[in-house]
Design a protein around this nucleic acid. Sequence first.
DNA 1: ATATTTTTAGAAAATATTTTTCAAAAAGAA
DNA 2: TTCTTTTTGAAAAATATTTTCTAAAAATAT
Lengths: 283, 283
Amino acid sequence: MSSYSLLLDIQLLYNQFTKTEKKIADYVAENANRVLFMSITDLADACNVADASVHRFCRTIGMKGYQEFKMKLSLSITPDETQEGEAPKEESDSLPNMLDCILEGYISALRETRMLLDIDAVDKTVSMMEAAGNIYFFGIGDSLLAAQGARNKFLKITNKVNCIVDPHMQAMSASMADSNDLIFIISYSGSTKDNIYVAKIARQAGAKIVGITRFLKSPLTNYTDITLTCGANEGPLEGGSMSAKMSQLYIIDILFQEYYRRNQTVSRENNEKTSKAVVEKLY
Amino acid sequence: MSSYSLLLDIQLLYNQFTKTEKKIADYVAENANRVLFMSITDLADACNVADASVHRFCRTIGMKGYQEFKMKLSLSITPDETQEGEAPKEESDSLPNMLDCILEGYISALRETRMLLDIDAVDKTVSMMEAAGNIYFFGIGDSLLAAQGARNKFLKITNKVNCIVDPHMQAMSASMADSNDLIFIISYSGSTKDNIYVAKIARQAGAKIVGITRFLKSPLTNYTDITLTCGANEGPLEGGSMSAKMSQLYIIDILFQEYYRRNQTVSRENNEKTSKAVVEKLY
DNA sequence: ATATTTTTAGAAAATATTTTTCAAAAAGAA
DNA sequence: TTCTTTTTGAAAAATATTTTCTAAAAATAT
């Protein structure tokens, strides 16, 4: 794995895991610092699985064996988490407190996204965008809003971006794409059928595909040329979290800034034009 | 040992060590992060001593055995020391640097939003939402996406929320609202003509109005019962900045969480129903 | 629905590692 | 020197890890 935090990698690969592996992942996530001092058998017992399964789990996440797993794990634990005594869980009853909790959640998700981001992938993505004849942003549900946001943003500096709202039309559009076209598929889970379908069609049509998703390995990533992973402070189960959406926006913004930087002159020109177009809509 | 840094403890005990133990201590001090991935035999070989001596060394410094020694060692190594290769000093306009700048911008905008938020206003807004017969989220451009996002989010727990995309339809809808209805108008600038128009109509119709905007005083706030202000760090490339959008999402999330909290039973029930409705859309 | 294939998980065997024991070597004291 | 104590490594014993193999479960095709 690329990331230097093993615990994070485990989250990323989570939906690739089998039931048994998930049990282990859950226990490890919950008791990371305890696991450091457990043998493979201890851990297996704690999870009610066989030693062999724990070993397999280690291999699944890319380690050579249990020992390497433990060492990598220990390195991904920050000194704070090391302390045994549990931090007194603050009551999130009060409204101000709740605001702070939510805020901190966002920040950690954004930082996670930053950490997970593969600079090379960003670089390549922007190059593909520059080379592309047409760029499409696709998504469903909340991710569709991100897709529309991306289109809105890029529309300020280039008119080769599109966003199609209706899933059927997305598929039709994808079927007509060619190797000159670039398709972004935004999907938090990477498992939404409609998205996968569009990805499949687009791939058949020969278009380039970039996925923006939480999970490095998901049905979606089978069809992507590049995958940009976004963080979120939650497991794969919960949907519609704001932090996931913010992470998507962050990635889009990065692509935008880099695209702008590389095409300053044209971008600035277009930006002025589009700004003027809406000025008279303001008081 | 009392100290939390094993490497330090080893230094402290150094004089008490035997010749062989000193050899081991020297090697460990010099190659701490390499040792993490060595077996007791590897380490013994590297120091030209017997396995048993390494084990004795571990006992001497107060560990139960070699494994515990390695774990304690790993915990006393800071993540920085972990990296083998030297980090090449990045030029200021490099891509990684840009990512960090953008990220910090978001964080400061979100914190600003947190600071600006009036707890009372949030409290009152949620109360109004509970009391309302219908809730509408209106916006234009990027703020329309936020409005749709809000509708999507609340739709998981209540079906009295609406979002109308077309500005003309928004106006028509507003004209039919009554004092039982609550209208959210999301507008970064608070100066968008279409938004103001809708606000004016809604106010005439007698509906309650909550504004989500950057500016406490703007044409919009003339018509609002409550104004929720969001922060944003205006960068050079302005117009539809992401941090503004994130701040809007933050405010929406807060309203959602508080609404959910006050109506737990119903919310949870509805949430389950709506979640089930989309489950089969996933692989 | 049934059969076939593939995947998954645990038991047991095979390896490897760690720990203990013990005797020899080295260092120090009489 | 000679005896005692300490230190060390080799080998044995105890543990732990990894691999292999089989049965069960799940997925897929018929």
